[in-house]
Computed example of a mutant assay.
Amino acid sequence: LRNHIQDLVLHLPVGIQYTLPSTLFTCSQLRHLNLHFCSIYHPLAFEGFDKLISLELCGVSTSSELLESLISHCPLLEKLEMSILEDLDMIEINAPMLKKFSFTGDISSICLKNVPRLVEASLIGDVEQTESLDFAKIFESCSALEQLILNFLNSEFVAEEGYRVPRRLPVNLNNVRRFDVPDILLVESYKLSYTICLLRSFPNLEYLELQVVDEDDSDTDEDEESTEESLQPETLSDLTFNHLVEFQLGSFIGGTSEMQFIKHLLANSPVLEILVINRQFLDEEPLDTREEIFTEISNSPRASPKAEIVYKDFS
């Protein structure tokens, strides 16, 4: 405090419950604050970090209310990274200058309440209850969002009988240009339904990357009912990619759902320039099987005369 510290990085060992001293919250010159594995309980008299532009919180112990208060008292905050390991109530993010947001934890506990300048977002984690995942609330004020990474990891999606995922968001996010889904199972499942819900809401998407989980993998954490059916054409019937330029498909094995998605995308992407397929796992198949798959993809109707299909091994 006496030295008017501007950058503070405090990484403590896992398991040690160290409570930050209240004097930290009087460091009015802080610009960058990085805290790992400690307890945060700022005093009631906390007036905020008026100059803080980046905040990283990993494995911290606190409450939803204190997190909300801390973030909202950083009026110049541009970058926020949070890895929340404990179960918290809904966390409303009120950061009008925020440009980049990364969150790991229960995705359904996040509400981007006031982030009109947010450009990049990364949401990684699980969902406690399928019905609790409300993308309309999560992306409530993300009109400037351009890039989104969404990773549900290995969490199970289970809902009560009769529950249906919304087909799209209440409003389109017209500025989204890039959408990355690093772990997706292309079968009839809630994860896929939520992903397609977002795709329908990104009308100006230019770059799409899907890292596919082996749909024939018996060790998947998806519930048995959801993994029995392949992707159906009607699921994609109203999904178009009018501005998509590049599509990257990872861990391709030539499964029924993968082929269905590729064919639909080629037929509904009028300005597509390149489709990149990671053939690493497909190379384990017999040569005649690979040739049959390649031929089927090559002969699929294309809306774009410029569309090029490239097979790569990213291993």
Results as ranks from 00 to 15, higher is better:
1 L>I: 06
2 R>P: 05
3 N>D: 15
8 L>Y: 05
8 L>D: 07
14 V>K: 11
14 V>S: 14
17 Q>L: 15
18 Y>F: 11
18 Y>N: 12
19 T>E: 12
20 L>K: 00
21 P>K: 03
22 S>W: 08
24 L>M: 01
25 F>Q: 02
25 F>D: 04
28 S>G: 13
28 S>H: 14
29 Q>C: 15
29 Q>D: 14
30 L>C: 11
33 L>N: 07
34 N>L: 06
35 L>M: 01
36 H>I: 05
39 S>H: 14
40 I>M: 00
41 Y>N: 07
42 H>L: 11
46 F>R: 01
47 E>V: 13
51 K>R: 15
51 K>W: 13
51 K>N: 15
55 L>F: 05
55 L>G: 11
56 E>Y: 07
57 L>M: 04
57 L>P: 01
63 S>R: 14
63 S>N: 08
68 E>D: 13
69 S>A: 13
69 S>W: 07
70 L>S: 02
71 I>V: 04
71 I>L: 01
74 C>D: 05
75 P>F: 04
78 E>G: 12
79 K>F: 14
80 L>G: 01
80 L>A: 03
80 L>M: 01
82 M>D: 03
85 L>N: 09
86 E>I: 13
87 D>L: 12
88 L>Q: 08
90 M>R: 04
92 E>Q: 11
92 E>V: 09
93 I>A: 01
97 M>V: 14
100 K>D: 12
102 S>Y: 03
102 S>T: 00
104 T>P: 00
105 G>T: 03
108 S>G: 05
117 R>E: 15
118 L>K: 10
119 V>E: 09
120 E>I: 09
122 S>T: 03
122 S>Y: 07
123 L>V: 01
123 L>H: 04
128 E>Y: 02
131 E>S: 11
132 S>W: 09
135 F>I: 01
135 F>G: 04
138 I>Y: 00
140 E>A: 10
143 S>C: 13
143 S>G: 12
151 N>W: 00
152 F>R: 00
153 L>D: 09
155 S>K: 03
158 V>M: 03
159 A>R: 01
160 E>T: 04
161 E>W: 07
162 G>R: 02
166 P>V: 03
166 P>N: 02
167 R>G: 15
168 R>N: 03
171 V>M: 05
172 N>S: 08
174 N>W: 12
174 N>Y: 09
176 V>I: 05
180 D>V: 10
183 D>S: 12
186 L>H: 08
188 E>C: 14
189 S>W: 04
190 Y>D: 13
191 K>C: 09
195 T>Y: 02
199 L>E: 09
201 S>F: 06
206 E>Y: 06
209 E>F: 09
213 V>P: 06
217 D>C: 04
224 E>R: 08
231 L>N: 09
233 P>K: 00
234 E>S: 12
235 T>L: 10
236 L>K: 08
237 S>Y: 10
240 T>W: 12
241 F>R: 03
242 N>E: 01
245 V>Y: 14
245 V>L: 13
246 E>I: 11
247 F>D: 14
255 G>Y: 05
258 E>W: 01
262 I>Y: 06
263 K>T: 03
266 L>Q: 09
272 L>F: 11
272 L>D: 06
272 L>Y: 11
280 Q>A: 11
281 F>C: 13
281 F>G: 10
285 E>A: 11
289 T>V: 10
289 T>W: 07
289 T>A: 14
289 T>P: 07
290 R>P: 06
292 E>W: 01
294 F>G: 10
297 I>G: 02
303 A>W: 04
308 E>Y: 11
311 Y>K: 02
312 K>L: 06
